[in-house]
Computed example of a mutant assay.
Amino acid sequence: MSLPPDWRGVRTLAPAKINATLLVGPVRPHDGRHELASVMQSLTLADDVALVPAPPGQGGDAVACPGVTGPNLALDALVAFRAATGWDAPPLTVRIEKRIPVAAGMAGGSADASATLRLAAHAAGVDDPALLQRLATALGADVPHGLEPGLALAAGAGEALERIDGVLPGGLVVVPAPVGLSTPAVFRRADELRPPRAADEIAAALGRLRAALGDPAGPRIPDDLAANDLADAAVDLAPVVGDHLTLLRAAGAAPATVCGSGPTVAGWFADEAAAAAVADDLGAHGVRAVVALPTRGAPVATIPAVPA
Rank of each mutant, 00 (worst) to 15 (best):
E192S: 12
A256F: 08
P184N: 12
V167D: 02
L230I: 09
P149V: 09
A233C: 11
D127V: 14
E97S: 10
G218E: 07
L282E: 03
D6W: 03
L230V: 09
N72W: 04
A115L: 06
A107K: 04
A83Y: 04
L117H: 04
I164Q: 09
D229N: 12
R163P: 12
V258L: 14
E148V: 14
I100S: 02
L43W: 02
L248G: 03
A20D: 06
P176E: 09
V306I: 12
A279R: 04
A211Q: 15
L237W: 07
G125V: 11
M106A: 07
G150A: 08
A254S: 15
A177C: 15
D165Q: 13
V68K: 08
G286T: 08
P216G: 13
A256L: 08
I164D: 00
G109H: 05
T44S: 15
G166K: 03
A227Q: 13
A155W: 00
R95M: 05
P178N: 14
A289N: 04
E162K: 12
V186K: 00
A46M: 04
R288G: 11
T116M: 01
L78C: 00
G9D: 07
V94S: 04
D31F: 11
A276H: 08
L92M: 09
P90Y: 04
T264Q: 00
G25R: 05
L92Q: 01
A217M: 11
Q133E: 15
V102R: 07
P144R: 06
P144L: 08
A46S: 13
L193Q: 13
R82S: 05
L23N: 03
M1A: 13
T183M: 14
E201D: 15
L119T: 03
M106T: 06
A154F: 05
A308T: 10
L92A: 00
P149S: 11
L23F: 07
V265W: 01
L282K: 02
G108C: 09
E192L: 13
C259R: 04
G171L: 09
V174G: 03
G25Q: 10
N228K: 08
A20W: 09
V265Y: 05
L213C: 06
